[in-house]
Amino acid sequence: MGTNTTTAGQNAGAPVCESTDRGLMAWRLLVDAVRFRDLLLALTYRDIRVKYKQAFLGIFWVFFMPFVAIASGIVFRLAIWFFKSQAGISESFGMGQIVPVMVKSVPWLLFAGIVGGSSTSLINSMGLITKIYFPRQVVPFSTILSSMFDFIISLSGMCLVLVLVLTTKIVPGGADAVNITTHYLWLPVLLLILVTLATGLGLFFSCANLFMRDVRYLVQMCLNYGVFFSLVFLHYEDFQGWGWIFFINPVAPILESIRTIVTQGRIAPDILPWLAYSTAVAVIVMIFASRFFNRSEALFAEVV
C-alpha cells in the first residue's frame, strides 16, 4: 500500500472544468477533453477492446463491414450499368465504376460510425454519469476516436487493395480510374470537414438522446437510409441536371468532392459552392451542438 502523504499543492491535479458561456464552447469542450486525455484514451481503448471481444472474426470486422458496403455499392453500379447498356450507352464495367464506390463508402462508414456510436454513447454510460464526475464530452469523444481507429484500419486496407488491383490489373478498366495529382492534399481537409460535421451531430444527438429517447430511432433511421440520400453509391451526374438537390444534404458534397478528387484529380467545379455550404453547416452544427451540450450537461445525471 502506498504511503498516504498527499499534500494539497502536490496533486492540485484533477482539472475542474468551469463551464461558463464565455468563449467558443466547441473549443473549450475540446480543451477539457484533452486535459482528461488519459480518461479519453482509456475509454477509447475500452470501446475498441469490447467491440471485438468474444467475436470469432475479431478485428476482421473492421474490414468486413466496408467490404460488404462496397460490395452492395458494386451491385448498385452494376444495375445502373446494365440499364445504361440496354439504353445503348456502351461502356465497359470495371474499376472505373468500382473505385468511386470504394472511396465514398469508407468515409461514409466513418460518418455513420461517429454519429451512430456517439448518439447512444451517453445513454450507454448512464452508470458512469450518475456515479462519477468527469467532463461528459469525454464519452462521445471516445466513441468518435474508436470510430476513427476503425476508419484508419479500413482505409489502409482499402488503399492496399486498390494498389494491388491497379498494379496487377486483375480487374479491367483501371487505367483512368485513379488520377493522382497534388489536389489529393485536399483529402485530409475534406475528412476533417466530414469529421467535424459528424462530431457536431454526434454531440447533439448524444445529449438529445438522454432527454428524448425518440432520437435514437430517428438517428438509426437516418443512418440506414441516408446512404441513398448522401450519394454514397449514386453520383450526382446520374441525375443529369438534378443532382444538386442531393447537395442540400451536407454530407453529399463532401463525399462527391472526395470522389472527384480521386478519379478526376480535382474537385468538380460545380461542387465547390456546395462544399463551402457543407463546411459552413459543419461549423455551425459544431458550435450549436457544443453550446447545447454544455447547457444540458448539468442535467445529465438527473434525466437519464
Binding site: 491535479g13 484533477a14 488519459d38 480518461l39 484514451l41 482509456a42 475509454l43 481503448y45 475500452r46 477492446r49 469490447v50 471481444k53 468474444q54 452508470g127 458512469l128 456515479k131 462519477i132 468527469f134
Partner: peptide, 27 residues
C-alpha cells in the same frame, strides 16, 4: 458505488486501468 466504471467484458487488470482513470488517476 464500488466498481463504477467496470466493464464486464474486460479483465481485472484492464479494469484497474479503466476504473482508475475514470476515478481520476493518471496512467
Amino acid at each position: 458505488e464500488v466498481g463504477a466504471g467496470f466493464h464486464h467484458e474486460l479483465t481485472g487488470r484492464e479494469n484497474i486501468y479503466l476504473s482508475g482513470t475514470i476515478l481520476g488517476m493518471s496512467r
